[in-house]
Simulated assay, not measured.
Amino acid sequence: MNLAINKEYVLKKAKELLEFHSPSGFCFDIMEMIQSWTQEIGYQFETNRKGAGIITIPGKSNEKVIGLSAHVDTLGAMVRSITSNGTLKFTLIGGPIVATLDGEYCQIRTREGKLYSGTFLSTSPAIHVYEDSTTKARDPQNMEIRIDSRVSNKEDVKALGINVGDFIFIEPKTTITETDFIKSRFIDDKGSVACLIGLMELLKRESITPEYTTKLFISTYEEVGHGSSHIPEDITELIAVDMGCIGDDLSCTEYDVSICAKDSTGPYDYNMTTDLIRLAEENKLSFAVDIYPMYGSDASAALRAGQNIRAALIGPGVHASHGMERTHYIALENTIKLLYLYLTK
């Protein structure tokens, strides 16, 4: 299908989103950025009490309201304690693959807004010193954060203003290659947020009105399980736009839009899923239908919270989830196309 998606715009927004720190519970700054983008495009933006963004796109009919959700919150960490030798113990926000954090740079943000750089390290970080440097488990119990300040004890760290409960931002190392691969932490789910921003820009630029009023819901607590537990009451159908899984027993690739028929919480709405598959087939999109047994989505959270909705799940294929992730622009494009087809069918 020939659709005038602005590739440069989508990639630019994806990069800006990925480079902006926003672990679960610390999304108000990034939401201000998304609000400014929305207002530049020309749609209404509001937030709920949890800080989630709600963007309303008027439709030809109000007979039903279609919700499209994606989460801007990411994995992260928080200061758990300060050690006697001036390093930080941490607790995880969400479920990053902890072994991939060993050697990663980070920033510690105090409640006063000061930022200090640091590095996640094993407590046996030197092969010339520790016999177990290569074998010690990489987990929060056996890791710590080395602060890039002249500190040697707990009192030195506290003098910097660093305290228990301060957020730790993991550096995403975002790179977009000349071949349109997107390499970064937290493509789950900022790749999908970029898809929604790109879709919104397309609809406004081409003066396209969806068949039904549409609300984009940018959630802020998905990685900790309750992102879309409360959505606008007038939403009747919700499509969660979240990363597609790649790996054993799955057919999705980094170039596909994934259509998930069932995840750990159960099957998604049969008729919505069937419509999405039909639209992808008829318009020759690159897509995959898969089952995700170790996965939950914003749609799952909404259903568990008792929302009276139908729900489905789609999103761009992402490799190495919760580690050093990668996808390709084509996967974002196929996701935008499928969302467009669903809204205008």
Rank of each mutant, 00 (worst) to 15 (best):
P23R: 05
R49L: 14
I55H: 06
V65W: 01
M33Y: 15
N62I: 03
G42D: 13
K50L: 13
I57M: 11
E40K: 14
E63Q: 13
I30A: 05
K60L: 14
I41M: 13
Q35T: 11
H21T: 05
M33F: 15
I30C: 05
Q39P: 01
K64D: 05
G51N: 03
V65P: 07
W37L: 12
I34V: 14
K60S: 13
V65C: 12
I66R: 08
G59W: 08
N48A: 07
I57V: 15
S69M: 06
I54L: 10
D29I: 12
A70T: 02
I54S: 01
I41E: 07
I55R: 03
A52V: 04
K50C: 01
E32D: 12
K64V: 11
T38C: 15
G53Q: 05
I34K: 10
M33A: 10
H71C: 04
W37E: 12
N62A: 06
S69P: 01
G25N: 01
R49A: 14
N48H: 09
A52P: 00
F26P: 00
F28D: 12
G51D: 04
P23V: 03
I30E: 01
D29K: 14
I41N: 09
T56G: 10
V65Y: 02
M33W: 12
K50N: 07
N48E: 05
I54H: 01
S24A: 15
E46A: 13
E46K: 14
A52F: 03
N48R: 06
N48L: 08
S61Y: 06
G42N: 13
F45Q: 02
N48W: 04
Q44E: 15
S36E: 15
I34R: 07
I34G: 09
R49E: 15
E32Y: 04
L68N: 03
S24G: 10
I55K: 03
S24K: 04
L68E: 03
E46P: 08
F28I: 07
K60E: 15
C27L: 02
N48T: 08
I34D: 09
I57P: 09
F26G: 00
T56P: 04
G53L: 04
S36A: 15
D29T: 11
E63N: 12
S69N: 10
F28P: 00
A52G: 13
G67H: 09
S36W: 06
A70Y: 05
E46R: 14
C27P: 02
S22W: 00
E46H: 11
Y43R: 03
I34T: 09
I41V: 15
S24H: 02
I57T: 06
S36H: 12
I41C: 11
Q44H: 15
G53M: 05
W37A: 06
I66G: 05
L68W: 06
S61V: 08
G59V: 09
H21E: 11
M31P: 00
L68F: 14
F26R: 01
E46C: 10
S36D: 15
G25Y: 00
S24Y: 03
L68Y: 12
